[in-house]
Design a protein around this nucleic acid. Sequence first.
DNA 1: GGCATCCATAACCCTGTGGTTATCTATAAC
DNA 2: GTTATAGATAACCACAGGGTTATGGATGCC
Lengths: 116, 116
Amino acid sequence: MNEDQLDLVFGALADRTRRAILARLAETDANVGDLTALFTMSQPAVSKHLKVLEQAGLISRNRQGTMRLSHLQAEPLKDATGWLADYRTYWSESYDRLDQLFESLNETKLNETSEE
Amino acid sequence: MNEDQLDLVFGALADRTRRAILARLAETDANVGDLTALFTMSQPAVSKHLKVLEQAGLISRNRQGTMRLSHLQAEPLKDATGWLADYRTYWSESYDRLDQLFESLNETKLNETSEE
DNA sequence: GGCATCCATAACCCTGTGGTTATCTATAAC
DNA sequence: GTTATAGATAACCACAGGGTTATGGATGCC
């Protein structure tokens, strides 16, 4: 992942509305009306956020009749995590066990995947 | 970590100059002059970036004589990683082995820590 | 075709951001 | 106290970002 992509992804994540949209799309795909109903802002505002997310590669969109469904594309989040993980050795100052976070993450993941 | 903090941290990371500053500080602490020398921009511009990083909790600063040393504070990166990790199940579409990334990360980490 | 619905786009406003130059403050050295 | 150096602050500029309202375009239905 290059610097331009990191700019776009971190920039997209730097807004709580867009993070909330991603959280919603983690449940199911949604159209613009669904997403607008989650917030107190106008539909064009939500459309703008969706454009930012799309340009960051965090969602894809396809027409479904008169609607456009947004679908979560989480791969850039993986890449961003990879970038952040380069600094994990510097978290160590406050952790005896560096693996603590990743271990707990993997445990949670196993639980989740076993539900699928 | 609350939404305000995530705004600040992801916002701070959304600029390649600031990411480069963090990468530099991962090596050693540095003063403003050191950091300014890395870029083609002016010293006040770098000072602004440092203020953004400081407000995000990503660096701390303390006087050392006439200089002010910046020091990497990586804990917010850990929290941001934790947030991103909530989406790791959605990376699975393109990976047979979900653990792949985290395993490779942990292996690298072990190598690094063994060098300390 | 005509109409309704879903959404995008345009135009605008205000504020924030990333940069500049100029200047001020703080510390150290003499 | 004077001077030099490190860095912060102020004032400014251009433009991006997040919001609005108004309007236009695409699709489905009658």
